[in-house]
C-alpha cells in the first residue's frame, strides 16, 4: 500500500513537472527577440530577469506572461536594440514604475532597515552577551571581609581533619 502511494506521488509529480516544462517552452515560443550582437542579447536577457513585473507580485518580466510584462519586454528590447546601457534601461523603468520594478532595491531611508537590520540585531546580541559575561565575573570576585574570615576558618578546619 505504502509503495503504491509513493509510486502515484512520483507519477503525479512527473506529470506536474512535464506540464510546467511544456508551458514554459510554449511561453518562450510565443515571441522571439533576436539580436545581431551577442553582447546585446546577453544584456537583454540579464535585464528581463532583473526587472520585475509591476502587475504580478513576484515575477520577473522574463517569467511573466502578463500583458504588461510583454509590453515591458518589448520596450526593453527596443531600448537595447537602440544601444541603451543597462543603467539607462533600469532608470527608464524606475522613473515610470518606481523601485518596485527592479529586483535590486536601492539604499534609501525606507530600505535602510533591510540593509542594516541584520547587523543591528547582531550588535545587540553581542552587547547582551558582553554585559552578561561582565556582570557574572563581578559577582565571582566580590567577597566581604567576613566571608574571607569564614573561608580561612573552614580551610584551617579542613587541614586539621586531614592531619588527624
Amino acid at each position: 500500500m505504502r509503495s503504491f502511494c509513493k509510486a502515484t506521488l512520483v507519477a503525479a509529480l512527473l506529470v506536474v513537472l512535464a506540464a510546467a516544462v511544456a508551458t514554459s517552452v510554449q511561453a518562450q515560443e510565443t515571441e522571439v527577440y533576436t539580436f545581431e550582437e551577442p553582447a546585446k542579447d546577453a544584456l537583454f536577457k540579464e535585464l528581463i530577469t532583473e526587472l520585475r513585473c509591476p502587475k504580478c507580485q513576484n515575477q520577473s518580466i522574463a517569467d511573466s506572461d502578463a500583458e504588461l510584462a510583454r509590453d515591458l519586454r518589448d520596450r526593453t528590447y527596443l531600448m537595447v536594440q537602440r544601444g541603451a546601457s543597462k543603467q539607462e534601461v533600469i532608470d527608464y523603468m524606475v522613473a515610470r514604475y518606481g523601485d518596485f520594478v527592479h529586483y535590486q532595491p536601492p539604499m534609501t531611508v525606507a530600505t535602510s532597515i533591510l540593509w542594516w537590520g541584520p547587523f543591528a540585531v547582531l550588535a545587540i546580541g553581542a552587547l547582551v552577551v558582553l554585559v552578561r559575561v561582565r556582570s557574572q565575573r563581578k559577582t565571582e570576585v566580590e567577597l566581604s571581609d567576613e566571608d574571607r574570615a569564614r573561608l580561612e576558618h573552614l580551610r584551617s578546619a579542613q587541614q586539621e581533619d586531614k592531619d588527624s
Binding site: P54, L68, D71, L72, R96, Y97, G98
Partner: peptide, 8 residues
Amino acid sequence: ALEFGVYG
C-alpha cells in the same frame, strides 16, 4: 500608459 507607469 507606459509613460504614466500604468500597470492595470
